[in-house]
């Protein structure tokens, strides 16, 4: 099996709470997987297990043929997994540009001794990083490049989301996990986001994307692989139309919709 990502029988318990219950799925290179489900269903926990923030109580996670279960986060990222956070976690007091440069951390090869004793080497490496980061910011749909010397904490909500994606892309990942990228965006901005993701896939056909989304218009744009999680269980998977028509899914959503009302 040459899946890029294999999540096999993953269970995550916090005390008595079962956040993920025996989840299994596989993902091919270059595909997009949308994860839907009500709030608190365990979607973000899934991201945390894949990126090594949590060690699953049971089950395995394999990435690119290597078992990464319980590997420290920075190791997982080094192997080519990048992510964004639900509550966009930028380095608020660093500039927009520096946020992206930090995102390239895994690509930096100069060590402490190089930095101290071979400053020319380190400086050249950083200069290259600056160029690449500026290029990434120019590619983004928002006015990020123009704002590159602003503290990231002062950006507008939609730009923060875009910057987080740019930062995640800076590490040249094989798999990128986007946690509710459209949160806080208006309709026009959401459309631009969808266009961004499509352009990204065209530029990097090898790149795989997992999206956690509430906005069905985004999910609709990537209909091939959708899965729905509720109470930590995988209740439906397949094409968007099929998942949407699934009675369990409707119940999960209608249930919460009714509760919210």
């Amino acid at each position: 099996m040459s899946a890029l990502l294999a999540v096999e029988n993953v269970t995550m318990r916090f005390g008595g709470l079962v956040a993920l219950d025996n989840i299994t799925f596989f993902m091919e290179k270059g595909s997009v997987l949308a994860v839907i489900g009500p709030n608190g269903a365990g979607k973000s926990t899934l991201f945390n297990v894949v990126t090594g923030v949590y060690r699953p109580t049971a089950g395995r996670v394999k990435f690119d043929g290597v078992d990464i279960t319980g590997m420290p986060t920075h190791e997982v990222v080094r192997r080519g997994v990048a992510r964004t956070f639900q509550s966009s976690r930028l380095f608020r007091d660093l500039s927009v540009l520096d946020n992206v440069i930090v995102g390239m951390h895994t690509r930096a090869s100069a060590g402490v001794l190089d930095v101290l004793f071979r400053p020319a080497v380190a400086r050249r490496e950083l200069a290259t990083a600056v160029e690449k980061a500026e290029a990434l910011l120019r590619e983004s749909s928002g006015p990020l490049y123009e704002q590159r010397y602003r503290p990231a904490g002062t950006l507008a909500q939609a730009d923060r989301r875009r910057l987080e994606i740019a930062r995640a892309l800076a590490s040249q990942p094989k798999l990128i996990l986007l946690d509710e990228p459209s949160a806080g965006m208006d309709d026009a901005e959401t459309d631009a986001l969808v266009a961004d993701i499509e352009r990204l896939r065209a530029q990097h056909p090898e790149l795989s994307v997992i999206l956690i989304e509430h906005d069905m218009r985004v999910v609709e744009a990537f209909p091939e692989h959708v899965m729905c999680i509720d109470y930590g269980r995988l209740i439906a998977g397949g094409r968007f139309e099929a998942v949407r028509a699934n009675p369990h899914v409707q119940e999960a959503y209608l249930g919460t919709a009714a509760a919210d009302a």
């Binding site: 990126t51 923030v53 420290p72 986060t73 920075h74 990222v77 080094r78 990048a82 992510r83 956070f85 976690r89 930028l90 380095f91 608020r92 007091d93 660093l94 520096d98 440069i101 930090v102 995102g103 390239m104 951390h105 895994t106 930096a108 100069a110 402490v112 930095v115 101290l116 400053p119 380190a122 400086r123 490496e125 950083l126 990083a129 930062r167 590490s171």
Partner: peptide, 30 residues
């Protein structure tokens, strides 16, 4: 020493973990 470290990816990594340790880890910073 301070300038060279500050103006390198090491200084940036320190600043990153100052701002948000979890996000720093997610950028591959040990």
């Amino acid at each position: 020493t301070a300038r060279r470290l500050h103006e390198s990816h090491i200084g940036l990594a320190w600043n990153a973990l100052r701002a948000d340790e979890m996000a720093a880890k997610a950028q591959g910073i040990n």
